[in-house]
Design a binder for these strands. Sequence first.
DNA 1: GTTCTAGAAC
DNA 2: GTTCTAGAAC
Length: 206
Amino acid sequence: MSWSNGLVKEILKPESLIISSEIAVVIADKFPKARHHYLVLPLADIPSIFHLNRSHLPLLEELHLLARNVVEVKGVHWQDFSVGFHAEPSMQRLHLHVISRDFVSPSLKTKKHWNSFNTELFVPYTQLYAQLEKENTIARLPKSLKDELLAKPLICNQCEFVAKNLPTLKEHLVGHLLDPNPIRNEPPVTTREPVPPHREPRSQPC
DNA sequence: GTTCTAGAAC
DNA sequence: GTTCTAGAAC
């Protein structure tokens, strides 16, 4: 398939590279699923996470270093990002996703997009690293589990909200961007004005 | 991975 | 009638 080689073609274009080292490069995702969405890819021809073994642990550390670097270069906050791999990648060439957790983007269009970043279909960097260190390989998820995770309801990644469909979730996520406090399903109950604490008038002027 | 669009869901 | 989802793409 031609489309699945899109990333390999992209990293051959110098103008696409935000950062590069002798080992790996960072590009912007062509269809970003959040306000910030970058991909870190090795120059070595490693097709996917399923081709990794313990010998690649130093390479993974290099990818992670570049992930931190691109976030710094963009002047944004590392703690606002998810960094990891898709459990079932579609595109050839190993790629580490570096994505801001707002998920506010016109390119976020399907339930699959959401669940691939917000369920076990997203494997955090640290988890994959540990798994590789322990097992010397990355195992595929069973098809039944993948189907189950893809079918999960649209649960907000910042509060308990469950959206009935994707447009509703997208509206809700914009709400978190404007007000990071949890959004309630019901409007807040109106309360009486708080009574100011009573103060005795001072007996003497200051 | 995306685009397109039929028909399901509302 | 319109919105939304999900499967085909030769």
